[in-house]
Design a protein around this nucleic acid. Structure first.
Lengths: 332, 332
DNA sequence: CCGTTCGGGGACAACGTTGTCATAATGGCC
DNA sequence: GGCCATTATGACAACGTTGTCCCCGAACGG
């Protein structure tokens, strides 16, 4: 029941452990006949080399990278993960993932656990604003790339999307179709992207020449019920909103469900694209950005660091694009 | 740039390396003043214990479990992953994932790589039918649970969903709404679930008293174009299909897109539920089963083995349920 | 005052592997 | 035949940690 080691293989094959090592690592200079004996022994014993021991001895790479994100189960992040995996695979690395659920202490726990495992690098979607805990790790040579949101208090490579520009564009799109009372429904303002998108909303209003009505801004709801209530409120007000910008895919979906079957639906533009948006009635106009592109960009940055890139930390902002499908053109 | 080791900490704190170990592991019998000196040194050097070394020395668990599935980026599998992660977290384990992309050799490569890392257990969505390569690993004490599909040639714990019963139910549902020419659009017959669902389709036809028309069965298409062509063919035939059962969520989505805007759409029931199915026009009737439940059941089984459960391999079949939303009731 | 106990701490080996260096056997060349 | 280069192999230490065993000094009871 104990696992066979090189020692066991060596004994069975009647060679030294070093010869086994040579065979396992395809090193030159082993007599074919000897190699064959060793391979037979390996097969017979079901030997598989212990990577922990190997990595310990060699001291170099463990061949793993750690990814900490909000929720591996969220299609957006699973797209990110997949892209990371693809890059990692080309570089012969395995991916370890963990979900922080927006809990900063959980994020920290995961990241440090990964460091204990000596991951070659870390990809993090920050849950909180404090990342000082990473400084010793970064100093010790573990590259870190932040994803989707910047770190609070350390400088490091960061890949973001153009939240502000995208949301502003959403507002302008709605304004171009005659809307003047455009609401913004965003996630908790503690979340970087939610805040940025709120800024984009304001910028869009300004550029469209629409006065800002704070009563049209609702931040925080993120489950179906609270989104429903917020929408109800916005539509029943003295001067009801005729259009809504939703701050992320979850909120968009909750809003669509809340509005299903309603008469005189407000126009809607959602941040984040999602599958089937084109098949709904009306098809949903979105600010699209590519989860895979985000993951790939971050992974590329990380591997550049592992390849020795010593340039100052970079901040990459990926473009977004408005995909007009119809829901933003509903009459005011 | 070299990482601090316990030795470095010991030197700085003026104690032996064993005392550092004791502090790091919260072992009793260290004078508080000594412990404090050690902790200060740890902090100053940014020491973090090397889990590879620890696991090697202790020989026990590495605290990881490996998950091989088709595609981490597919929402269905990311739901599975999330559920696995939750169970693993409660047991203090990390999750390593890898996508096989339905390639048996890739599956094998990933699984064996994970074994080299000495994962505590393996969760596999089989890509192929040959799993003999796992026998030595299982014999060496690595528990393996197969997920969603059974292994071809080894007996091990397996968690499946009721593919046959579910698909049969779909056919009966359509038949109950007057359909007699019901088509089945499934994935490659090499894939276990596709085959099972085809069997379910046939069983459903038999139970509904519908004669089997092989021209109504199309296996294989799984990208948008081929699904589109298959549907076109089915609808343009001399005796066109009035209803379709789609074999998985990808095919369902492709079919919906192909049918968008068509007149006299065939009725449709899809295997696998998906987000927004209820918001489409008409809302899509599906055979629903729960990715999270699948992941949880498999992880529970795995941890039971790790806890020493030595019972014969189990096969768990999770129930599915037909969620009638309307698309199955379209007039024949 | 001596033997015992106990708290605190250290020396050393071992986990499974690989890098370094040494050694034995072989063959070719003068 | 003697010498060296080459090939095939092995002995040994080291990676960073932890388990085992041992030691030292202080406190305590008789």
């Amino acid at each position: 029941m104990r696992r066979a080691t090189m020692n066991d293989v060596a004994r069975l094959a009647g060679v030294s452990i070093k010869t086994v090592s040579r065979v396992v690592n395809d090193e030159a200079g082993v007599h074919p006949a000897t190699a064959e004996r060793v391979l037979a022994a390996i097969d017979q014993l079901g030997f598989r080399r212990n990577l922990s021991a190997r990595n310990l001895r060699r001291g170099s790479s463990t061949g793993t990278i750690g990814v900490v994100l909000e929720d591996v189960g969220n299609p957006f992040y699973s797209g990110v993960t997949r892209a990371v995996e693809e890059v990692a695979r080309l570089r012969g690395r395995q991916v370890i993932t963990g979900s922080s659920d927006e809990d900063p202490s959980r994020e920290r726990e995961l990241a440090l656990e990964f460091c204990s495992r000596r991951v070659d690098g870390l990809l993090i979607v920050p849950a909180g604003l404090q990342h000082g805990y990473l400084v010793p790790e970064m100093r010790a040579g573990t590259p870190v790339v932040f994803l989707d949101r910047p770190a609070g208090d350390v400088v490091a490579d960061t890949v973001l999307v153009d939240n502000i520009g995208g949301t502003a564009e959403a507002v302008l799109h709605l304004a171009a179709h005659g809307h003047r009372r455009i609401a913004f429904l965003g996630d908790s303002p503690d979340i970087f992207t939610a805040n940025e998108r709120l800024r984009g909303y304001r910028e869009g209003c300004a550029r469209a020449g629409i006065g800002l009505h704070e009563s049209l801004v609702v931040m925080g709801p993120h489950d179906e019920d609270s989104v429903r209530r917020a929408l109800h409120h916005l539509r029943r007000a003295a001067e009801p909103a005729t259009a809504v910008v939703t701050g992320n895919n979850r909120i968009t979906v909750h809003a669509l469900r809340a509005l299903a079957g309603a008469v005189r639906r407000p126009a809607l533009v959602g941040f984040d694209d999602f599958e089937l948006a084109d098949l709904l009635t009306p098809p949903v106009t979105v600010i699209a950005h590519d989860a895979r592109a985000l993951g790939k960009a971050a992974a590329d940055l990380l591997f550049a660091r592992l390849d020795g890139d010593g340039a100052p930390p970079r901040r990459v902002v990926l473009p977004v694009r408005l995909v007009a499908r119809g829901s933003g053109e509903v009459r005011a």
